[in-house]
């Protein structure tokens, strides 16, 4: 199961949920599952980057996941 951790701003839109386990094997399915559960998350997901097993992706889509992968959503960082 893939572990998905939601920060405070996500949790506010996801009935207070801070962590969940999902039976998925790629990132696209994580997004689909989160939007299915909480459609109001979609705009926030759209403008977030994500850390998959510690690696930060500004724009992930089809990344494969391991059964013990950890996912954190983060604000997009662009820097100067």
């Amino acid at each position: 199961m893939v572990k998905v951790v939601l920060s405070e701003n996500f949790a506010l839109l996801a009935d207070g949920c801070r962590e969940l386990q999902l039976p998925v094997d790629n990132y696209r399915d994580v997004i689909a599952e989160l939007i299915a559960r909480w459609p109001q998350l979609e705009p926030l997901l759209e403008r977030s980057s994500v850390a998959i097993d510690g690696l930060i992706y500004q724009d992930a889509m089809y990344e494969p996941l391991q059964s013990d992968s950890e996912i954190f959503f983060m604000p997009r960082i662009e820097g100067g």
Partner: peptide, 13 residues
């Protein structure tokens, strides 16, 4: 260090 849960979320590579 590697594996530390960063304060902003993920574990550091």
């Amino acid at each position: 260090e590697e594996g530390t849960q960063a304060s902003y979320g993920p574990k550091y590579p």
